[in-house]
Amino acid sequence: MTVAPGSTAISSRFAGLKQQGRCALMPFLTAGDPDLATTSAALLALQANGADLVELGIPYSDPLADGPVIQAAASRALEVGTTPASVLEMLAGLKGELTMPLVLFTYSNPLLNVGMERFCADAAAAGAAGLVVPDLPLEEAEKLSPIAAAQGLDLVLLVAPTTPAERMARIAAASRGFTYMVSVTGVTGERAQMESRVAGLVGQLKAMGPTPVAVGFGISGPQQAIEVRSWGADGAIVGSALVKRMAQAKADGGDPVATAGAFCAELRAALDS
């Protein structure tokens, strides 16, 4: 069963950017690091500084797909008592102010713990536009996708550099909103160099259908965002580099929110150059 890819907040945002010939900037934040008030303010700062969409991670105890930076952020968020429910409550409080589409990133277990239907209903009610579940198998994703769609949520699927072409086509066909191209064979975290073979994969993926392709995992700054744009990607996702800067600012007694805004503006300028 596939759901017809109608117009959603995410797909319209990508369509609009395409008309302007721009590459979407999608920062990632771990919710609750260092606390939800900071996350809430940081989301607005990202929006004000040129983010087109945002990805928000629900902290989880065993984040298999994440490198040290986001693991540590999740641990800090859990230590201060962040829960999936409190993240959604924070989001609901931003209704009307946060106008860019928000994609929730969650591992399978917290989602399955409340059940697919309820999780999707609650996420949609809080204002999320999409979902990314990095450890959900394609077969399960095919079950979750229509449930999410019924709530107006796009279930975004991931493609890795190791994914064979035949499987890539199935994933591209099933993904909603955009397809998340993982840019490295590995976990999240900044890399000195991107894997050059991914450049070809972006083109291959885009040739498989109209769904936009956003590249993430391993983008460490403006230069690599530009590189990803040059591959023909419709969006660049920046996570660990931002999460690390915010944690550093906090540790140095600075303002993580202002730091997030400034870094976002830098990325925006690079992508528009």
Binding site: S108, D135, L136, P137, E139, E140, A160, T162, T163, V182
Partner: peptide
């Protein structure tokens, strides 16, 4: 065939590992 023992089992891993 899907690697399940009744409702248990399966492959809840990042996509990178699926081919392996």
């Amino acid at each position: 065939g899907l690697g399940r023992f009744g409702r248990f089992g399966g492959q809840y891993v990042p996509e990178t590992l699926m081919p392996a």
